[in-house]
Design a protein around this nucleic acid. Sequence first.
DNA 1: CCTCGTATGATTGTATACAATTATACGAGG
DNA 2: CCTCGTATAATTGTATACAATCATACGAGG
Lengths: 229, 229
Amino acid sequence: MGSYDVKQEVTDKYSLRGRVFNRLREDILSGKYKEHEELKEVAIGEELGVSRTPVREAFRQLELEGLIQIIPNKGAYVTGITVEDVKDIYMIRSLLEGLCARWATEKMTDEQMAEMEENIYLAEFHASKGHLEQMAELDNRFHEIMYEACDSKMLEHLLRDFHQYVLRVRKKTLSEAGRGEASNKEHRQIMEAIKEKDAKKAEKLANRHIINAYENMVKSGLNEAYNES
Amino acid sequence: MGSYDVKQEVTDKYSLRGRVFNRLREDILSGKYKEHEELKEVAIGEELGVSRTPVREAFRQLELEGLIQIIPNKGAYVTGITVEDVKDIYMIRSLLEGLCARWATEKMTDEQMAEMEENIYLAEFHASKGHLEQMAELDNRFHEIMYEACDSKMLEHLLRDFHQYVLRVRKKTLSEAGRGEASNKEHRQIMEAIKEKDAKKAEKLANRHIINAYENMVKSGLNEAYNES
DNA sequence: CCTCGTATGATTGTATACAATTATACGAGG
DNA sequence: CCTCGTATAATTGTATACAATCATACGAGG
């Protein structure tokens, strides 16, 4: 498990296509390319120092992720992401992370549970020290463990996609106003529910965990960066 | 709304890339290409009478849909879809269609409600006449209306993807043993819940609607086609 | 002055050529 | 007989060339 993700990482790191794809996604999500803006293959290619081929392949992927819309023989246009989209993403993720927790309750291995306990222990340590970088890393890993533990290729794939979407935003929010500690506490509660084999409880806690993360983000006003339309 | 889908359809119909993409997806889902089988660019290209370029672009999309895994400088390998995957897809769809129904309750326009009522009326008519083709079409359209009505670009996009996944299977199951009538009845209940502005009820009914479709499929034994591993 | 058609340029779609990487076969050395 | 290294072949990655399509500008006709 998880090998898919590793391979993907390798692809992204070493292939031009992967680099173009990541770069464009980042630039679209960060608002460098505004909504309805046209992306031209040659222009992007020249900017990144590559030919049209990897750019085109990246475009096809971005289209499938819904970030751009390609009109045949015409061009690629940025779809953008609004505040409503961000809210929707968190609401959808809330449901799916809940489902993931429910399934993980039944499927989690002892090794995964051990890693999760270690993860929470370390997260609480780094939170007390104010190590933001490690906290973000451990937070990511906590969710990764859950994705692997739910033992569903489809759900794992889906949640990773969403995770990517909110990654940039979440990294910032973790550094805000004690959200790190609160998040860790919620992680611990989820883990304990799984340990008690209470799938329903784990699901509800995971639901709430994502909603809390969203509400914290809104409260911090960090979603304003997306306000474009 | 829905223009994205239309454009996509145009792309798929008239571009080589779209045709290759659809053909490969169909072939993978139908089991023509077995799990772990390697897909070679030139071989596929020759078989479909196109060059490597459109094949490569189709590969990138298939990878993002999780149907194949591309290992850099090595090859593309079929991921396949197991009975467990099918079950997972239906469980995930159940949640998402529920969310869609909940949101649609608040956002649906009068025009959309009118079309939905007409859709159900027509579906009941064709069901009584045994017009399978029209029933399948109307069933698709019912869900499309919901997707548009929930007024969420993200959720709409996601549900369309899942819909595509199960489309081939569902068309068969509708023709089975009175599932059409039962499905219509459930559609009507969902519509009435939306009309009554009872979002919670609409959500639960939509949840159940998908589960029922799945259970009917399992009962019919039509999922056996996927049994490969 | 407006409308429409044609011509020109820009942009994407596809095919092919070349480079880089990986797998395989074969033989030398132990 | 086995192991390792090298050479060759196969495959993917990237760049470029050409074809098809679309947008724009300009001018003829009304």
